[in-house]
């Protein structure tokens, strides 16, 4: 088993951990966690909605900081991190917004309100989708413009966090999480672990692909310029993904 896990590398270990944790988390949520008195059974969406939202903010910050480094130091490594984190951020954002809408439909009677927390989260999602579109289709000179978008998106994270404190919102306040009873926390931890392990595994896989893509491009360029020997070395050293 350990040899198998080693052959898949760190993403494989993380995915395996998520795969093991997910059924445990599910049985904890449905069999060992009390039904919340006000919202009823629908509150169980919370156990995966919250980790998605936290993951969204975490990966937005990772992408934003990496994009800032890309801008300041012209680092290609930072650009790869920013892109990979940006994709995972967009994925988690869709998950958080959709699960939130479904939960809202069950408890508020409507999937969407003009609530500050919802609007700022949707804004973050749109900024990162714009970032990915510009980075992919913007051409060779669009990398820095895309990075600026990612930095702008990361600046939205503190606004999302404080939105429930600054404005009157329908969305529960941050203190609600702190005041959860111990049995709800005991169910939240495995859910959080499963989502974050899965997210980091996908992030690392995407990051490796981004690096391989860059090396392959460099190798083809070098080859077309007639400089085959260093291209071979570069391409073959980066084919491990």
């Amino acid at each position: 088993m350990s040899a198998l896990l080693r052959s898949f590398g760190r993403p494989g270990v993380l995915l395996f951990a998520a795969l093991v944790t997910f059924p445990y988390a599910l049985q904890r949520v449905f069999l060992h966690t009390p039904i919340e008195s006000e919202m009823g059974t629908a509150q169980k969406i919370f156990y995966f909605h919250l980790p998605m939202a936290w993951g969204l903010m975490l990966f937005a910050m990772i992408s934003g900081v990496a994009a800032a480094l890309q801008l300041l130091r012209r680092s290609e490594r930072a650009e790869d991190v920013a892109k990979a984190a940006g994709e995972v951020c967009a994925l988690l954002g869709i998950g958080a917004l959709m699960s939130g809408a479904i939960w809202g439909d069950a408890t508020w009677g409507t999937p969407w309100t003009g609530d500050a927390r919802l609007v700022t989260t949707a804004l973050l999602e749109l900024v990162f989708i714009a970032y990915l579109i510009v980075a992919k289709f913007g051409g060779p000179m669009a990398g820095r413009l895309a990075a600026a978008l990612a930095v702008f998106g990361a600046l939205d994270v503190p606004i999302i966090y404080y939105s429930v404190k600054i404005w009157k919102t329908t969305h529960p306040k941050a203190q609600v999480v702190q005041s959860l009873p111990p049995e709800m926390w005991a169910s939240l931890w495995p859910c959080l672990f499963a989502i974050l392990a899965c997210s980091f595994a996908l992030f690392e896989l995407r990051l490796r692909q981004e690096r391989v893509e860059r090396r392959l491009d460099e190798a083809w360029l070098a080859l077309s310029a007639g400089d085959a020997a260093p291209a071979e070395h570069t391409a073959l050293s980066g084919r491990s993904a």
């Binding site: 059974t41 629908a42 998950g95 699960s99 479904i102 939960w103 069950a106 996908l202």
Partner: peptide, 21 residues
């Protein structure tokens, strides 16, 4: 109704991860 919402929410979340994979 609550369970129907839960199934949709959980289904969408894990479909997103599978789709990305």
């Amino acid at each position: 109704s609550d369970y129907s919402h839960i199934v949709w929410a959980y289904g969408i979340l894990w479909s997103l991860f599978c789709g990305f994979a």
